[in-house]
């Protein structure tokens, strides 16, 4: 494993920890999109079907379990926890997320590395992850006051994407056989979606003012 990949996994982990910290300690999920969280839970469920079939490493197994458990518990908190769910910004979280699941599934059936159940689910999870952030970005844009933790959550998620691209570039040169065009292209699309957010995040951080996205 190279340093970019490890740093990418760690920023991904930090983003989840930041979000859980906000939900668990402040008992608030204000500004967090339930739609995005549901999509992530679906992404991990579809991708980690190989969890009990293919053993890669202890690190790999533990991280998969962490991402599965954290994504489902965030969804649980936002839907069922009696205090947390009251802070959910339902009126602004209106992205029709169900409508992006089906196109991703169709795309996975058409473009995959192998036409088997697990490979199609893997491709589906990659496509879905690429667009899963959209409801969150839409919600951020509609929210007047983006609190620091929510901003940091999205920032760390975006950092994870950038680091994964650097990891692929590194792997391309060091492991020529390792080429997964599906994840690379979808990963680049996903990272581009963050570009706008990153721009405003860095500006607000540089000027030391509260993050606010233009309408």
């Amino acid at each position: 494993m190279n340093l970019f990949r490890l740093a990418g996994d760690m920023t991904h982990l930090v983003s989840v920890v930041v979000l859980l910290l906000k939900i668990h300690t402040i008992k608030s999920c204000a500004g967090v999109s339930l739609k995005t969280q549901e999509l992530y839970a679906l992404v991990f469920a579809a991708r980690y079907l190989d969890l009990f079939v293919h053993f890669v490493s202890l690190y790999n197994t533990v991280m998969k379990l962490v991402f599965l458990a954290s994504s489902f518990s965030i969804v649980w908190y936002m839907r069922k926890h009696k205090i947390v769910r009251r802070t959910y910004d339902r009126e602004h979280d209106t992205f029709r997320h169900h409508f992006i699941v089906l196109p991703c599934l169709v795309l996975a059936l058409l473009i995959n590395e192998r036409f088997t159940f697990r490979e199609v689910m893997w491709a589906f999870s990659i496509y879905l992850e690429a667009v899963a952030i959209l409801p969150q970005l839409v919600l951020l844009q509609r929210t007047r006051n983006i609190d620091n933790l929510t901003g940091q959550y999205v920032f760390f998620l975006g950092a994870y994407r950038v680091l994964y691209i650097l990891n692929w570039i590194y792997r391309y040169f060091t492991e020529p056989h390792f080429v997964h065009w599906i994840s690379w292209i979808a990963g680049i699309v996903q990272t581009v979606l963050y570009a706008d957010f990153f721009y405003y995040y860095i500006i607000s951080w540089k000027n030391n003012v509260k993050l606010e996205l233009p309408a």
């Binding site: 990949r5 293919h54 890669v56 790999n60 590395e113 192998r114 893997w122 990891n167 056989h177």
Partner: peptide, 10 residues
């Protein structure tokens, strides 16, 4: 047989 063991990323 090329299996999907090469999917070692998260």
């Amino acid at each position: 047989e090329h299996e999907q063991y090469d999917k070692d990323e998260l």
